[in-house]
Design a protein around this nucleic acid. Structure first.
Lengths: 235, 235
DNA sequence: TTCAAAAAATGATATAAATCACTTTCTAGA
DNA sequence: TCTAGAAAGTGATTTATATCATTTTTTGAA
């Protein structure tokens, strides 16, 4: 983790899609005062399960996984974060320790806003508080959706879904080229909730069917519509 | 569904444990004006997946399951509700259709507060809005916890956990007698995320070990501490 | 109290996916 | 560009759990 001059919130390209979209200009200026900016190398831990949160992270660049480990060392990825996404807000609201860890999937940069500023912001700006409420509601819906799929869908369908999730999360806007992402089979398995060998096997099947291609750990989605059909087989 | 005179919120025994614990006396009086009171027979649908929410339900008596069905008719229970619990708040906040159905597990009574009153309440009372935020955060944490367990724990452990969940949800306070509940093996399977035959088999194992007893569909938890150990085998 | 339908229980079998053991292919640093 | 370690890929085997078929028990209404 490295610290350096932070980009200004007012000029941040992701602000209008973030929790801070309804902040006043003065509020943003205040935040700039106290926030700090960190960079993380691929694989570095941003925060760790069991630790106390001291503030809110906001991803500026890169990809982040939020995941939990069990005692066997098996990992499950709860969600993925992209630039503009906030990390750790649930623990801050509950005023409780992190129940999951955040790890950079790529070289990542993130701003850090102290808890006191975060709390002050949501106490003083009703719009932001409302947006946060909506964010929580959305996250809850997403989580329940994933729970249901984990309980009811076979691995092949969940893998198709995971690939589409990666695409919808990380595909750059107005990018017409097929979506590519570099992700280890192990991380993919931890999203799907299965073993990496199983991911590899179904991925090979998708490759045979011309739905995806891969070179090393880079996967390219050639036919997303086919993945959508596969993911919805039993909906 | 049957309507009759509603109990007054001011005097409701569950209010202090509910979303309305921080309501002003006048607010409660206003709510009494517009709310209505419904009774549901065991098995009756309170609201249905796909429908639009018109207000908030607050359970007054009975047990409710919130669940989703897939196209095969397989059911998964997302959560359980008890007296004092609110139903449908997530859909109201997101202003979206119900993504799950609520069904009475016992004869149930519930109050219904129109959406406009609910929205007005959270817009006008910051404390209630904050409590709602905390409720969402807690629900999100619970949901993620269940997701993780579904992905990582075998059925036997999840069954032990489900039995403890039933106990912690529905055991009356200051009740020292062993906890008993009447629940179909099918519903239990839908909580655990498995087949009913599998539930029956592990339940028989628990019975052989003297951890639970059962008569028909009534299950009694004799040794909750043993269930706790079983549920935590791989934590 | 009886009886039929529903639910629980049990056994046999099938199947999806995990695990283990190994080979091949990448990839990043010297 | 070479090379060692990591990751991808493959095959064989095991295991947990689902499914199917059937019997037994419970339940609630006549």
């Amino acid at each position: 983790m490295k610290s350096q001059a932070a980009p200004e919130c007012q000029r941040c390209a992701f602000r209008e899609f973030s929790l801070f979209k309804n902040c006043q200009h003065e509020e943003l200026e205040g935040m700039n005062e106290n926030k700090c900016f960190h960079t993380y190398k691929k694989g570095q831990v941003i925060f760790h399960e069991g630790n106390r949160p001291f503030g809110l992270f906001c991803v500026f660049d890169g990809k982040v996984k939020i995941s939990r480990l069990n005692s066997d060392g098996k990992e499950h990825i709860i969600r993925l974060a992209k630039p503009g996404d906030t990390l750790g807000y649930r623990s801050l609201i509950e005023n409780a320790k992190y129940t999951a860890s955040a790890v950079a999937l790529d070289d990542t940069q993130a701003c850090f806003l102290p808890a006191s500023d975060f709390n002050h912001l949501i106490d003083s700006n009703v719009k932001v508080a409302n947006d946060l409420m909506k964010m929580l509601a959305k996250a809850l819906g997403d989580s329940q959706e994933r729970m249901i799929h984990l309980a009811m869908k076979p691995v092949r369908e969940r893998l198709a879904e995971a690939l589409l999730l990666l695409r919808s999360t990380y595909q750059k806007k107005d990018e017409s080229a097929p979506f590519s992402i570099s992700i280890s089979r192990e991380d993919l398995a931890a999203i799907v909730g299965t073993a990496k060998e199983t991911v590899i096997r179904f991925l090979s099947e998708f490759k045979e069917d011309g739905i995806v291609t891969s070179h090393g750990s880079t996967i390219t989605i050639v036919k997303p519509d086919r993945l959508l059909k596969i993911s919805q087989l039993y909906d």
